[in-house]
């Protein structure tokens, strides 16, 4: 995973609560066996007026002029400002892959659904949670000014507004550490392989019925 320390970029504001992962990346694109190439289909049903299928040339497709990512003012947005319960529904990590492939480096919302929230960290896209009132204010500011940019300083745990005001945010220390260092979580866990084996052998004795020779067949 790439390191994430600090990032400054233009903000797009998606003013809907409960945006689900089916909306972020519709199911027909989940047939891909790769992690990349989802960006053109991000929010496909909202973004285009026709029906999207994998492999389509999106440059030629009719766009929904009302959808935020199609507004000229949000072109090139790299920080997504969203509402409550962002990323609810399906566990598909493709949702984060699509956001990231499109160019979003950070998502900010008052709350996230658990699995999506977790998936974000695994892909170097920090999900930043802020109180509802602060998010409301950011929505107003983003709406009022074209080209609104925020700086996300993960080390200092602050967002910096164009006026230079710092807004502190909370983030899980372990997750933050992994992002700052660009750590491979599997590699980290494997450092505890001995502990895992010790646990396993103890459990084999205590609950042998959970350790069949082979489960199926």
């Amino acid at each position: 995973m790439e390191k994430f320390e600090t990032f400054t970029g233009p903000v797009a504001a998606l003013d809907r609560a409960n945006v689900d992962t089916d909306a972020i990346i519709p199911k027909q694109f989940l047939k891909s066996i790769r992690r990349t190439g989802f960006g053109p289909y991000l929010f496909d049903e909202w973004r285009y007026l026709d029906h999207g299928e994998p492999g389509m040339d999106c440059a030629a497709r009719p766009r929904n002029p009302d959808f935020i990512l199609n507004l000229p003012r949000y072109r090139g947005a790299q920080i997504l400002l969203a509402r409550d319960n962002f990323g609810c529904g399906s566990s598909r990590e493709h949702a984060v892959w699509a956001l990231s492939d499109y160019g979003f480096r950070v998502v900010i919302a008052p709350s996230f659904a658990d699995i999506f929230f977790n998936n974000c960290f695994k892909n170097g896209v920090p999900p930043i949670t802020l109180p509802g009132a602060v998010v409301d204010r950011l929505f107003r500011e983003v709406g009022a000014r074209e080209g609104y940019r925020l700086t996300v300083d993960l080390r200092a745990q602050v967002l910096v507004t164009p006026e230079g005001e710092a807004i502190a945010f909370e983030i899980d220390p372990f997750r933050r550490h992994c992002l700052l260092e660009g750590l491979d979580e599997i590699g980290l866990s494997l450092r505890r392989a001995e502990e895992i084996r010790a646990y396993e052998s103890r459990r084999r004795d205590e609950t042998p019925w959970l350790f069949p020779e082979r489960c199926g067949g």
């Binding site: 566990s91 598909r92 493709h94 695994k122 979580e185 599997i186 866990s189 494997l190 895992i196």
Partner: peptide, 22 residues
């Protein structure tokens, strides 16, 4: 627990998950 693909890989490789209790 429902998990994303990175965690599918994590469980495949380590038989464990990194979690905080809910």
């Amino acid at each position: 627990l429902g998990i994303g693909t990175s965690d599918v890989e994590h469980v495949l490789a380590t038989q464990s998950l990194v979690l905080k209790k809910s």
